[in-house]
Design a protein around this nucleic acid. Structure first.
Lengths: 150, 150
DNA sequence: TTTAGAATTAGAATGATTCTAATGTTCCAA
DNA sequence: TTGGAACATTAGAATCATTCTAATTCTAAA
């Protein structure tokens, strides 16, 4: 019989709970944990290089390739979201609650906006028969209050 | 050598009407017209390099930089839309009717889906006060019927 | 016609991402 | 435990999309 892992009796934190799903297909390595934790602590939708510089504060030897690798695994596992708002760098987001992204075209800031009421895209759009939806991405572009006031 | 075509005094087509707005800020050059016409005749949301190869059939001397330049001007003029669905190349779309993009993650195909009923993003999402919306971009990712049937 | 400004070009430069090959780490079965 | 297979990590190279540059050509208005 395989011995059960004699793991720490500590209660898993919220992040640990979320990260537990990684075990199935990919290891929860210290780097993956760190990348996830740093992203989860960020509210500014950082890019891969943003995360690289932030994670380097804790793990000075991590490489950018590893950050990309970790982000890919976390995205595949559904733990984080990849966001494409504009040309250039992709952004990442650990907010898994249903939300959309408001992108200020003046200052570049990205703000999460949460639903005021139910939103079911399938209700609104005539998608071809047989289409299977895995995720939706709503990006709202415009000018944020601060920029509009200037 | 053949004389340059002495163009018809024909009525402006739908495309000409749309292109007329270019006159204000940018010239309607033959290249810009061609890029627009080729895009307007495409239903597959081509990338800049896709358009480059298609336009080269008509204008063998056009450069990729010019295609990018034309696409930038047409986008700025509001004649076409820039679509970011995934990493890598941006895609372009000349369908200005309100619609969303369905992206098949298996075959990469992009399908326009039109509204079944009114959709006003401002109704559904709690955007910060003072936010001004200039455009919204809804991308629906999943599997198309053909890929799902396999 | 002249001329300033815009458009175009080829190729170089940039920047984001992915790949490669070498090395290190972990897990599992014997 | 141990040996090996599979996975993770690294630095740097390679790739790919896009933008920039500098030279040239075109256009429109004076």
């Amino acid at each position: 019989m395989p011995p059960p892992t004699q793991r720490q009796p500590a209660k898993p934190t919220g992040l640990d709970c979320r990260l537990a799903v990684l075990g199935k297909d990919a290891r929860l390595t210290p780097h993956r944990r760190e990348v996830f934790e740093v992203l989860a602590a960020s509210t500014d939708h950082p890019t891969a290089t943003d995360l690289y510089t932030r994670v380097k504060d804790r793990s000075p030897h991590i490489s950018l390739a590893t950050v990309y690798n970790c982000l890919d695994h976390l995205t595949t596992a559904g733990l984080i979201k990849l966001v494409h708002l504009e040309r250039g760098q992709s952004r990442y987001c650990a907010n898994l609650h249903e939300h959309v992204h408001f992108h200020c075209e003046t200052c570049g800031k990205v703000i999460d906006a949460h639903p005021a009421s139910d939103f079911d895209p399938a209700k609104f759009w005539n998608l071809p028969k047989g289409t299977r939806i895995t995720r939706t991405d709503l990006a709202i572009h415009g000018t944020c209050d601060a920029c509009a006031s200037k």
